[in-house]
Design a protein around this nucleic acid. Structure first.
Lengths: 262, 262
DNA sequence: CTTGACCCTGACGTAGCGTCAGCCCTTCAC
DNA sequence: GTGAAGGGCTGACGCTACGTCAGGGTCAAG
């Protein structure tokens, strides 16, 4: 007769595992000796070896009980189920691994490579940290909802960086948001630049996305993000409104007003 | 501002997951509106998208907090750790899958194919169910401790089935244990056969395994298994002892005695 | 005013054990 | 005889990442 630790050692499992199998009724409780210790015979060893082998093969404990005494059909079905489950788990982990691999290459997991390239270009153009972080977070919002569309947009965005006025705008914004001061003349310059660019896009027929059938939530979040990030963004919205534009990141033409927003 | 379900939907997670992230401090609790509802801004969306993306990539939640604001080296190390962990998990599941595949082919998971072939041969020779089950359980015990050695033994075991006396022995045992009667003359025949075979093996120099340096536990369990399985095995041991052999599955020469065992 | 869709907190459940805590039993050396 | 070591016992909490009630409040629409 064996003690619990001898039994466990024979089957290559821990004592705790054996007690667990007792607890869930997978392995019957054996007789106790006069001091209350469990004493195991050869049948218990055979049972435990079977259990341990199946468990090691990835069979859920709940199914092992049925499995060890099932007929052909039940057995085959169970094996099929288990195999499918394992296959799915493996596939999921494989996907995780490729994601992790992309992680090793920087922002690439959260943003499509095109966006990463765009942000890199901004950095090269001397755009400051805070502005780039705002851009990145904004693109994360967009990419979360429209991963494919964002990729389509990027060539245009990248090309627009050839326009010296746009580069100038980014640099002005950099200067604005890199300190904690409120530089009113500089903000006016930024607003003028943005208004001019918006007007040009408007003339060229580039309206904002049709609000009728579009999901505006990402754009709303974009506005919100800017307002949350820096109180000066509120002032910028005001300045734009004075110039006849509503919004900050997605501009709409409105009658110019000198009023306060909200 | 978003409600919790809008936030969750945007990031593609469940409401419960968001609350869980709050609970473990992964995502900061937002302001509440006057009815106690959580209200989220754009920054929360960005944070949650990051968290969800990393979690989906298989990063443990406990590491995500560090990961989203780690320096280069820490980040690379963490990514390396995570990738290794994923690789190991995949490898384990792959092994499980091959095991499961073997399961689909019968006993093959618990016993080496050679033993399965041996048992199949016994069945062909007309050995009855109970005896085969006893054999199988016995081999499970042996294979659990000595998987390799068992495979080496099998060619000899298989060859021994060419000996008509051994086949006869198996058939007598089948007849004996297939009913619940105690057939004394048949038991005597079985004992005579076993004794003769043991004597022959002994003459041929095939001693039992050297008990000095051997692990006898598997053999002890084998004896125990027989005694547990059927009380008539006790009688068989007595009969063998009268013929000068000790044990039942691993025989040792002893002075013949008509006494009772133990 | 009701109805259905949300929101809240709190708490238990999941799988398979690991790991105490607190106590008993046996054995061995001193 | 007496510690100390090395089992064994039960009971209970911990871990992962949430799912799923239960019991109750809130909001918007018909």
């Amino acid at each position: 007769m064996l003690t619990i630790s001898q039994l466990a050692a024979y089957a290559g499992v821990t004592v705790r595992a054996v007690r667990h199998y007792h607890q869930i009724g997978l392995l019957p409780e054996p007789e106790r000796d006069r001091s209350g210790y469990r004493r195991y015979g050869a049948h218990a060893v055979v049972s435990l070896v079977k259990i341990a082998t199946l468990a090691d093969a990835g069979v859920p404990l709940a199914e092992i009980a049925d499995l060890v005494r099932a007929d052909e059909a039940t057995f085959a079905a169970a094996v099929g189920r288990i195999d499918r489950r394992l296959r799915d788990e493996i596939a999921k982990l494989e996907r995780s691994r490729t994601s992790i691999a992309r992680l090793a290459a920087g922002d690439a997991l959260l943003l499509p490579p095109e966006v990463v390239a765009y942000l890199k270009r901004l950095r090269e153009l001397g755009v400051s940290g805070p502005v780039i972080e705002g851009e990145r977070d904004g693109w994360i919002l967009m990419a979360a909802r429209w991963p494919e569309r964002v990729r389509d947009w990027m060539p245009g965005k990248l090309a627009s960086l050839e326009d010296p006025r746009i580069v100038r705008l980014y640099r002005v914004l950099s200067q604005l948001f890199d300190t904690s001061e409120l530089d009113e003349p500089l903000m006016a310059e930024a607003a003028d630049l943005m208004a001019a660019l918006a007007e040009e896009a408007w003339q060229a027929g580039q309206r904002s996305i049709d609000p009728a059938e579009e999901d505006t939530v990402p754009f709303d979040l974009l506005e919100l993000l800017a307002l949350e990030t820096d109180p000066r963004a509120i002032r910028m919205v005001e300045l734009m409104r004075e110039r006849g534009w509503d919004g900050w990141t997605r501009l709409e033409k409105v009658p110019p007003s000198p009023g306060v927003m909200r």
